[in-house]
Amino acid sequence: MANEKILIIDDDPLVIRLAELIIKNINLQPLSALKGEDGIEVAIKERPALIILDLMMPEMNGWETLSQIRKTECIQDTPVIILTARVGATGDLIGTQNKPHYEAFLPKPFSMQEMRDKINEILNRAP
């Protein structure tokens, strides 16, 4: 369990650093990638238990990356948390029709607690 890997894919290195700090703080192993394609490569190689995916990235954006993940057999069923600022008045993600499956989303800005709780929730761990 101590070695469960979490992959974070986000084009913002500051966010990656944040996430890494939080993940390490709950005794998990962070992996990271700055681009969608790189993230998929790392996922295939490392088979993380969870992927945290930013939506707004240049080049291959979040949805495209997620789509690719769902099409890649060996990582198809990896749970994904979407990270995004695109949250509307209702607190719902804007524009989610016909999108590939994701387990949860974290609206930006998030608090440490929120990210911790979400990760624990998905990995069925005690908080």
């Binding site: 966010v15 600022a85 930006k108 800005p109 440490m112």
Partner: peptide, 13 residues
């Protein structure tokens, strides 16, 4: 929201 993420995040850390 992105800068806010940074502010809150690092502050909390």
């Amino acid at each position: 929201r992105t800068p806010l993420t940074h502010i809150k995040g690092y502050t909390e850390i």
